[in-house]
């Protein structure tokens, strides 16, 4: 238990950032539904299961043009 307490200052921010990125990407991809490649289901899987890297990939190369 003490161990976990010691690492809380690390774990909480990491979880917050992960969630922020995931939610931002999910909201965006559910709203616009346009992709340079792949489809919506594929990107939902990537964004939800590939922590941090998934949303980054979505925003940088997966997202369709405006």
């Amino acid at each position: 238990m003490n161990e976990i307490m010691e690492y809380l200052p690390f774990i909480i921010p990491i979880i917050i950032v992960e969630l922020v990125l995931m939610v931002a990407a999910l909201v965006h991809l559910l709203k616009y539904k346009k992709f340079r490649f792949g489809n919506q289901i594929l990107w939902i899987v990537i964004v939800v299961f590939l922590q941090i890297i998934g949303p980054i990939l979505y925003f940088t190369i997966g997202r369709g043009d405006e």
């Binding site: 950032v17 922020v20 990125l21 965006h28 941090i52 925003f59 940088t60």
Partner: peptide, 14 residues
């Protein structure tokens, strides 16, 4: 608005 700021800051924060 294209989320570049968000991505850069979160990744570098991590």
């Amino acid at each position: 608005r294209t989320y570049r700021l968000l991505i850069c800051l979160s990744v570098f924060f991590l």
